[in-house]
């Protein structure tokens, strides 16, 4: 019986770690391949939120419910609280300093209006 629960814990941990790896891979590829900074912030946010959650919850499940796992939960809370704040200020600085931001926004507006015309 103990062996079965051990295997279940192992498989859940492995699945969570693999999904965390997937998230981080996507985040890294996005950060290096995207050209525009807001897209980069978005892709790094994937790693910061979902990848971090998966990795830390895998460690929590592997160690079981102890004081250490409670501390790790606190770590998730901290990361989820601070990461959006830093992304927010990165995008704000980009908004204030980038003179050519209107090009991107204009393009988006044009595409949206085209979509609307198609629908009509």
């Amino acid at each position: 019986m103990i062996v079965v629960t051990d295997w279940i814990v192992f498989f859940i941990t492995a699945a969570l770690l693999l999904s965390a790896l997937l998230c981080f891979t996507a985040a890294v590829i996005g950060v290096y391949r995207f050209g525009f900074i807001l897209n980069r912030i978005h892709s790094s946010g994937i790693g910061d939120s979902l990848g971090f959650l998966c990795a830390i919850s895998a460690v929590i499940i592997a160690t079981g419910l102890k004081m250490d796992s409670l501390k790790l939960m606190l770590l998730i809370l901290f990361m989820w609280f601070t990461s959006p704040v830093s992304s927010h200020f990165l995008s704000q600085v980009e908004y204030y300093t980038n003179e050519h931001l209107y090009r991107y926004t204009d393009r988006i507006i044009k595409e949206e209006s085209k979509d609307r015309e198609k629908r009509v």
Binding site: T82, V85, H88, F89, Q92
Partner: peptide
Amino acid sequence: TYFDVSKDTIIRLAGTVL
């Protein structure tokens, strides 16, 4: 003044909690 973030609501909340 451009980068003075101290009037921002988000960072005020973050500071209050953290």
